[in-house]
Design a protein around this nucleic acid. Sequence first.
DNA 1: CGTTCTCTTGAGATCCCTCAACACCTGTGG
DNA 2: CCACAGGTGTTGAGGGATCTCAAGAGAACG
Lengths: 233, 233
Amino acid sequence: MTINENTVNSAVNKMSAWLSGTHIEHTSLGHTVTHTSERHLDTYEHLFFEGDKSSHVYLVVSGVIGMYKLLGDGRRQISTFSYPGDIIGLDTIDTHVNSGEALIKSVVRCIPVNAIDKLIRTEPGFGKALLLLTATELAETRELMLSLGRKSATEKLATFLLSIARRSANNGQDGDSISVPMKRSEIADFLGLTIETVSRCFTKLKVSRVIYLKCNSKVEILDMDKLESIACG
Amino acid sequence: MTINENTVNSAVNKMSAWLSGTHIEHTSLGHTVTHTSERHLDTYEHLFFEGDKSSHVYLVVSGVIGMYKLLGDGRRQISTFSYPGDIIGLDTIDTHVNSGEALIKSVVRCIPVNAIDKLIRTEPGFGKALLLLTATELAETRELMLSLGRKSATEKLATFLLSIARRSANNGQDGDSISVPMKRSEIADFLGLTIETVSRCFTKLKVSRVIYLKCNSKVEILDMDKLESIACG
DNA sequence: CGTTCTCTTGAGATCCCTCAACACCTGTGG
DNA sequence: CCACAGGTGTTGAGGGATCTCAAGAGAACG
C-alpha cells in the first residue's frame, strides 16, 4: 500500500462515512451506530473542558470548534480550529488535554469511544484510517510550532490566512476570497500574539495591498505570491 | 477497554518488543522482522531530511535524535527530542515533514513501513498501540504549543527542565539530578529563543538557587516546587 | 599551547506588549 | 427616531522582554 495525500483524503472521506453511519448500516455494527447522536452548540458553548473524562470522539458537522489550553493566570493558547469534516479527540487518551469551545453556532456528531474501539476491531481499514488522520494532525501541529516559535507577527498572520485559503481551495471553494469566522482575540490566542498586534498586522497587509477586507470576517487575497513570500520569511 | 496512562505505558513496552523482534519471533512475521536493521549515527549525522520519501519508522535504541524544520533564511524550530524507546516517524505519511538529526552518537532500529503495515494487519493490538502512541505524541506536542506561544523565556526553560526531570523519574532514574544532553543552541531552537536568552535564563535560575549546574549538561534541581511554580506561570 | 567551539555577559536596538482612547456596530429601550 | 450601552476592532504612545551585536571566558582537542 502506497501512502500519499490521496490516501489521506480517502481516509478522511471513509472516516466521515463510517462515523456518520452511511458505511456502517450495512454491517453488523448498525446497532452501535444508532447510539451516535448530534449535539448542537451555541456560540461560546463548550463541548468539553480540559481534564474532563473523555467519553466521545466528535465529528464536526457544521461550525467551528476551537481547542485550547489555559495557564493559571488566564493566558490562552488555541492549538487548533476544527472545521466540518474534522475529528475532535484524536489527541485524547483518557481525559481531554484541551478544552473545546464552539466559536460560532456548531453541530457535532458524538461517537462513543467504545464504538470507536469496536470499529477498530471489526472494520478492516478503520484503525489504519484513524492512524493516518492522527499522523496528519501531528504533522500539521508541528508545522504550527514553526510558526509559533520562529516567525514574526506578520509572518504568522500571513501563514494563518494562507492555511485558511488552502483549506477553502481544497473544499472546492474560492481560495482567494476566504471566510475568517474567528474574532481577533481568537486569532491572537492561536498565533501567540495580542489582539492589538493582530489588528496592526491586518492593517499592514491591507495597506500594502496584499489583502482587502470586505468586512472583519471576509478577506480577499489580492496578491497570493506576496502573501506566500511573507509567510515563509 | 479502559484507556489510561498504564495502557499507554503498556503500549510503549509492547511496541518496543514488537519492533525489536522479541514479540515477533513467535509469530509468522519472523521473516519480516529479520529485515529490520540497526543504524549507528555520529553526532550531527542526519537520519533523514525534510522532504525525503519515508521508507522506515525508527525506534531509538540509544542517544537522542532532534526533529526540526527550517525556514528559508535558516531559522530553525526543533519540534521534538526523541529518546531511547521513542518511535520516530509517527507524524509521517509519505514524505518526512521534519529533518531528523542525532544530537549525540545514537543508535536506531529501522523498521520498513511495509513491515509496519503487515504488523497492523496481522498482529492484534498493534494498530491500536500505534494509535495510542501517536495520540500521546499529539497531546504532548499541543502541550508544547502552550509553552511556545504563551510562556516567557524563563517559564519556557523551567517547563523544559521539568519535562526532562519527569522523563528521568519515569525511567526510574533520579528526577532531581538530570542530564541535559543538548547544547544551548538546540534548547533555544526548541523553545523559540536565542542562545543568549537561554543562557541568561539558566543564570537566573542558578542565582535564585532553583537549580545548580554541575556542568553544562548536568543540572541538579534544588527547589522542585519553585521550578514547577515558575513553569506554570 | 594555539585553535575552535560553546557558553556567558554586557550594551543597545527592536519587536511586541501594555495601557489608553476612540471608532464602529448592534441591540435595546425611551 | 435617537440615546445609550456593550462588544469588538483600530490606532497611538510608551515600556519592557527578547534579540542583535560584540567581547571575553571556559572547555575540548590535536
